[in-house]
Design a protein around this nucleic acid. Structure first.
Length: 463
RNA sequence: GGCGGCGUAGCCAAGUGGUAAGGCAGAGGUCUGCAAAACCUUUAUCCGUCGGUUCGAUUCCGACCGCCGCCUCCA
């Protein structure tokens, strides 16, 4: 039984979809004005783990993630770059999707663009206008918070007063109440604009998510995901405009991913601790290692991203892969041994118990590593039989269907040159010419090939 | 100022009203020609500080200290 923390109730609740076996979920996607950074991707990896675990638990998943391709920062940056809106956003959208793929994040079923859903936004605004929830000012359309008494139920913020010390938006747009938010923005000179019954302009940020989520998932759906910073105002506003339009509960579970710190500090360009996926890949860390680090701590606690942590993640991942390699290479008698079979069983139980508890990946991984140690011991003692090896490999594959970090098990491709060198080295070893043997090993290591002498002969793998 | 979260070994980090998972790093050992991989042992008398409740608190309550987030740009 999967339990998830629900921001709306601030409690862990048993998860059950509205429809029997189908989970409809929406995740706030990127605004495509720059490369995504690892903080962004922590959220997307966490959502991916949620999505994969739901599938692991036998649910069908209909997952929608928007691409925000019109927004103030986009307009600013596209001008700076001297590109058209389309050209500019297509570039960063493609880069974003490429990073997603690198990080082994499954592509959501639908990835709608805001600019392709102006009609749906118009419909939503029309409903709100008819319901008396909006007002117009200087060609822009605003949502009136006063018309929605439940406003604030997600964030728990009381906005009546009490904003001393807070920045109050000094917008160029005139609002009746500082808390109101814009649905449709009147165009300023030379800005991209679309024609609607509300006049020319462009959508406010919040509108697109309500319009697109409800289009693809219905007026009420199961899970809405995003970073914690979106709780207010973005998600609060989505609830307001959606529920004001339909009169129905918008979302059952609100799933929020905590922030990533970098070396104990907030990531920012000015601090020089701002990393994109490719920054880290360029520094020699694989995307799987990055993914492993991002998912190794529970999604709902702040994660301190460090380079030591990244190196540690790399070692941890090697350990899992080494076990898989040993199991795959094992040639053993048919049958099964109690110790190994028990380790596999406990790993799966522990993994599921951890994941069921609000996706506690730390606890889930601990159970897996318990089994890693036990299986390695059993392997050392020759107590892993064919059936055990197969079930242990199946266990790793099953767990990795959620974690997505192991990558393909590469078949030991024969590299004639490497093989010849290994043969030469083994001949040298037989003749006890260890200097020559060690030199070959060092040379191969420099070329990224690690040699291991085992009772079954010399094995090699790529670093 | 309002609201929320966190503070566990060198680092990351789980967790519980009954006496501290797991990973990384370090040290010692087994194996090895030497390594690597793997395994074993070892590294928190203690879970920010101080009080309180309790037979018993790291776990509950209060105060304090420190860190982080949100309070209409933001994953």
């Amino acid at each position: 039984m999967l339990r998830l923390k629900n921001t709306l109730t601030r409690a862990k609740e048993e998860f059950k979809p509205i429809d029997d076996n189908l989970v409809r979920m929406y995740a706030c996607g990127p605004t495509v004005y720059d490369y995504g950074h690892i903080g962004n991707f922590r959220t997307f990896v966490a959502v991916d783990v949620l999505r994969r675990y739901l599938k692991y638990r036998g649910y069908r998943v209909q997952h929608v993630m928007n691409i925000t391709d019109i927004e103030d920062k986009i307009i600013r940056e596209m001008r700076a770059a001297g590109k058209s809106l389309r050209e500019f956003t297509e570039f960063y959208t493609a880069e974003f999707l490429r990073d997603m793929e690198l990080l082994n994040i499954e592509r959501p079923e639908v990835t709608p663009r805001a600019t392709e859903h102006i009609a749906e936004m118009s419909e939503l605004m029309e409903k709100l206008r008819k319901g008396g929830k909006t007002y117009e000012s200087d060609g822009s359309l605003y949502f009136s918070i006063a018309s929605f008494p439940r406003y604030g139920k997600l964030s728990g913020l009381k906005l009546e007063g009490n904003i001393a010390g807070a920045r109050v938006d000094v917008d160029e747009y005139d609002k009746a109440d500082a808390r109101d938010f814009v649905l449709w923005k009147a165009p300023k000179e030379d800005e991209p604009k679309w024609d609607t019954p509300f006049g020319p302009g462009r959508p406010g940020w919040h509108l697109e998510c309500s319009a697109m989520s409800m289009k693809y998932l219905g007026e009420s759906f199961d899970i809405h995901c995003g970073g914690v910073d979106l709780i207010f105002p973005h998600h609060e506003n989505e609830i307001a405009q959606s529920e004001a339009a339909t009169g129905k509960p918008f979302v059952r579970f609100w799933f929020h991913v905590e922030f990533l710190q970098v070396e104990g500090e907030r990531m920012s360009k000015s601090k020089g601790n701002f990393y994109t996926v490719r920054n880290l890949v360029d520094k020699g860390f694989s995307a799987e290692v990055i993914r492993y680090l991002l998912l190794s701590a529970p999604y709902n606690t702040q994660l301190n991203f460090t380079f030591d942590g990244l190196r540690g993640a790399s070692s941890s991942l090697d350990r899992l892969r080494n076990l898989r390699r040993r199991l795959a290479d094992l040639k053993s008698a048919p049958g099964s041994n109690a110790a190994a079979a028990d380790a596999v069983k406990k790993a799966i139980e522990g993994f599921e118990a951890g994941m069921d508890d609000d996706l506690n990946t730390s606890a889930a991984l601990a159970a897996v590593f318990d089994a890693v140690r036990e299986l390695n011991t059993a392997l050392d003692e020759g107590k892993v039989l064919e059936g055990d090896a197969n079930s242990a490999l199946a266990m790793l594959e099953k767990i990795d269907s959620v974690l997505g970090v192991l990558g393909a098990l590469e078949n030991a491709v024969l590299d004639p040159e490497v093989e010849a060198l290994i043969e030469e080295r083994n001949a040298a070893r037989r003749e006890r010419k260890f200097a020559r043997a060690d030199q070959i090993r060092d040379d191969l290591l420099a070329r990224g090939v690690i040699l291991e002498d085992t009772p079954q002969g010399t094995k090699w793998r790529r670093k």
